[in-house]
């Protein structure tokens, strides 16, 4: 009796939600006017940027989620084991180069890597792939080329530093975590994993759809939250005053890294933003922006948290930050 009432309530929630969507779809802003709601201009800007980031990220998230679901349904553990490099350290280099082939940015690579790790890929290869794919990628290279046409050293530095750093970070994470499992496993998954029951033959394409949808909801919440915070920063942060905060190289590198973190731009577009700072910041700190942002930003960290254990994400964050900071300062010394 009680359960039938709650069921009725649940159906109602869904139907009301659907009705609200349809109403808003048909009647634009007349509803706001009708209720006399007024929203300050700046928050409308936040809203526009928020929706814009989501629209930009969704296709790539869906792409990553689909590839991940396809791997789940069609690539067996054995196949993966056969193609993976056997050597724990030497394998880092092909892993980084593999990132260069995938023309995807950070939103798409994370679900794919998670799936590959789950299928038995060693952790350190996954880390390298996650670090290198968003930087060493033809589309990113092209946009960096156009944004920094007058000084192509920036392109070369970004690519080579991304390559080296991804290997270094993979190496450090391997030293720290070895072969332990750092994925988030829920209780149900663990029990499911221990009982070796071969599921009966089902429609694999149907399965792919389920996986894709569930994974979208799994990681989508982090993406949406990250996009919202990033859009607030985008509207309210005065970038012109950033340069006046510090005068030394370490300080401006730190500021650009912080900016890359909170702006959470897609690596395919961040080069243009970086180049717009060139009159206020040194080349080395722009490089920090370009290398750090794709590997780690607000949106990213939340996505990592969706898939990896908190301690792992924390240490990964510290490793990426320290490695980028030190290497950029080294590059700065060499540039002079």
């Amino acid at each position: 009796m009680i359960s039938s009432i709650t069921n009725g309530m649940k159906d109602l929630i869904g139907i009301v939600t659907f009705f609200v969507f349809i109403t808003l779809f048909l009647f634009n802003t007349q509803l706001l006017d009708y209720f006399g709601i007024f929203i300050a201009n700046q928050w409308l800007h936040v809203n526009a940027i928020f929706i814009s980031i989501l629209l930009e990220a969704f296709p790539f998230v869906l792409l990553g989620v689909f590839v991940s679901a396809l791997i789940q349904s069609f690539v067996s553990e054995d196949t993966l084991q056969r193609v993976l490099p056997k050597h724990a350290y030497l394998g880092l280099i092909p892993a980084a180069l593999l990132g260069a082939i995938f023309p995807v940015c950070e939103c798409a690579i994370i679900p794919v890597v998670r799936r590959l790790i789950k299928k038995g890929m060693p952790l350190q290869f996954g880390v390298v792939l996650m670090m290198s794919a968003p930087i060493l990628n033809p589309i990113v290279a092209a946009s960096t080329y156009y944004a920094f046409q007058q000084d192509l050293t920036m392109l070369y530095l970004r690519m080579s530093l991304g390559f080296i750093l991804s290997i270094i970070i993979g190496f450090i994470m391997f030293q720290l975590f070895g072969k332990t499992n750092q994925l988030r496993w829920t209780k149900e998954e663990l029990t499911g994993a221990s009982s070796i029951q071969r599921s009966k033959k089902r429609n694999k394409w149907k399965q792919t759809f389920y996986h894709a949808s569930d994974e979208f909801f799994d990681m989508g919440k982090y993406l949406i939250f990250g996009a919202f915070l990033a859009s607030i920063v985008n509207v309210f942060l005065d970038r012109t005053m950033l340069a006046s905060l510090t005068s030394n190289e370490a300080g401006s590198t730190a500021i650009m890294m912080g900016l890359a973190f909170i702006l959470s731009l897609c690596s395919e577009a961040d080069a243009f933003v970086a180049s717009s700072f060139s009159n206020q910041f040194s080349s080395a700190s722009l490089l920090a922006f370009l290398v750090f942002g794709p590997m780690l930003d607000l949106k990213n960290v939340l996505l990592y948290l969706a898939y990896f254990k908190t301690k792992f994400v924390l240490i990964l964050t510290i490793t990426i930050t320290t490695a980028t900071f030190c290497s950029v300062l080294l590059v700065h010394i060499f540039l002079q």
Partner: peptide, 18 residues
């Protein structure tokens, strides 16, 4: 997205972006 008026970013954003 559906319900709010669509805005075009303007000078207040420009000032912050430089």
């Amino acid at each position: 997205g559906l319900g709010f008026p669509q805005s075009i970013i303007d000078s207040s954003v420009a000032a912050n972006k430089g």
